[in-house]
Design a protein around this nucleic acid. Structure first.
Lengths: 260, 260
DNA sequence: CGCTGAGTTGAAACATGTCAACCGGTGTGG
DNA sequence: CCACACCGGTTGACATGTTTCAACTCAGCG
């Protein structure tokens, strides 16, 4: 299993630019208002930046704060003793991370920044205070967790019951739809997907060798291209068909922000 | 794919008896105080009973109430168009079901009673009222969802990265530990596990034929026996080793009740 | 007494993993 | 400035775990 290292600087920089939408290929200005992903607007102890490749928290870290992801991509992952790795979820801006089942428990999964990221940090000591003042917040938290759960269930179904080809198509489509939902009204069929083939493998339960083969076929069939962190959907209908997506479920992905 | 039908009456009855702990093989009286699994004690619109094999809610049902499972086993499952099925979670007493990512959304997964069950039903119309009166409840809800998420991540890791043998061992151990945690101080290595081999397959992402082979080997190796809904752990250490469980994670299973 | 659901078993097919080699780009150190 | 190491990707040959298909048992039930 290859080690996970940092991306070359030039790449992460261009990813971050693309991520923030400052420049895009059709020239439209889609600058992000970062605050639209902020769950708790008033209360915060300050934003934190994490550079690509670092962990927001690792397996075994104590629960000390919850994070509201404002910008960037994050992968949640688990590890087995012998190094096998499973990416269990991709978090996009708006996500809430770091709430565990019991107060002060240790994390059973890690969270790694795939790009440079910006977080809003809410220390645990303040959380109960907020929820008391504004009871709505805890409910939004719960809804956010429910969304994560739904995504996880969907993912699990993919890994457990779909073929390699279906899994890869499903993941590409999921990430494409979720990403595009962040830029409403902005219709592009191309995006920056800050993943390696190995990470796609870790998310789909496949080896990177096999992911490569599947991607090659999809490319040859002119359905989708993924190359060096750029994803281009050539035939959306075909991809949806392969992924076996119920439009119902696709709709659930569209609403990334909790509480709405 | 075989259809899922009801269990024979005699079996479900004995399961329910065992579940309620009215009689156990060592003669100890372990009658359940059903109320210890009640999340919201005061407010309720009444308990509901669901018989084994029926759905608490199905895929596509609207969110109208949340359920607090008080007694019995429930399987959460998803379906693909062609009938492939994935069990994404097993819910035990104390679980909270039916909160979806957006108000009034439709369920993307179903919930099927594996035994006769008892639920406390809290209609959605009352939920906001409760959380306003007692802000703590929403937070306990969130913690409960966080636990479900953790379980789902763990499950996903199993399906994505473990071999068939490891997956089956892991599932048996998970259910054993979670079940036993409900009867503190009660040390038995035998339990009623109200599943068919096909359901184990649906939970682990395997075919029931292969599950059968794996179980047969585990039986021959005198590690664990599963036969007609009785599970007996013969060599716990060996099973833990095969399952590749981090004791850390096992501890997280132990606390089934939210908010503690 | 036949039917049905669950479990069991074997043989063959096939999807995916493993191992190994090689390519091109990027950063790095001499 | 070049040589080198390293990472991510690509490809082929082969190994193997799991599925598929099919037949058969057993128990409970009408």
């Amino acid at each position: 299993m290859r080690e996970l290292k940092q991306l070359p600087n030039s790449l992460t920089k261009s990813i971050a630019d693309n991520q923030r939408g400052q420049v895009d290929r059709d020239g439209a200005d889609v600058s992000a208002d970062i605050n639209r992903f902020r769950l708790i607007s008033g209360y915060r102890s300050g934003d934190r930046r994490i550079e690509a490749g670092r962990d927001l928290f690792s397996i075994g870290s104590p629960e000390d704060a919850i994070f509201n992801l404002l910008d960037g991509w994050v992968a949640l992952y688990t590890l087995l003793e012998d190094g096998r790795r499973q990416i269990v979820q991709f978090a996009l801006p708006g996500a809430v991370l770091g709430l565990f089942p019991t107060r002060g428990a240790q994390a059973t999964f890690g969270a790694q920044a795939l790009t440079d990221t910006v977080l809003c940090v809410i220390p645990h000591s303040k959380l109960s205070e907020f929820t008391r003042d504004e009871p709505d917040i805890a409910m939004r938290l719960a809804r956010s967790l429910a969304r994560d759960c739904n995504l996880a269930f969907d993912h699990m179904t993919s890994i457990g019951r779909r073929s390699a080809r279906e899994r890869v198509a499903h993941l590409l489509l999921e990430l494409f739809v979720r990403y595009r939902a962040q830029w409403p009204g902005h219709r592009i069929e191309e995006m920056c997907l800050p993943l390696t083939q190995e990470q796609i493998g870790d998310a789909t339960g496949l080896t990177f060798v096999h992911v490569n083969r599947v991607l090659r076929v999809l490319r040859k069939e002119r359905i989708a291209e993924f190359h060096y962190r750029r994803l281009r959907i050539l035939d959306p209908d075909k991809l949806i068909e392969i992924a076996g997506i119920d439009p119902q479920i696709a709709m659930a992905w569209l609403d990334q922000r909790p509480g709405s």
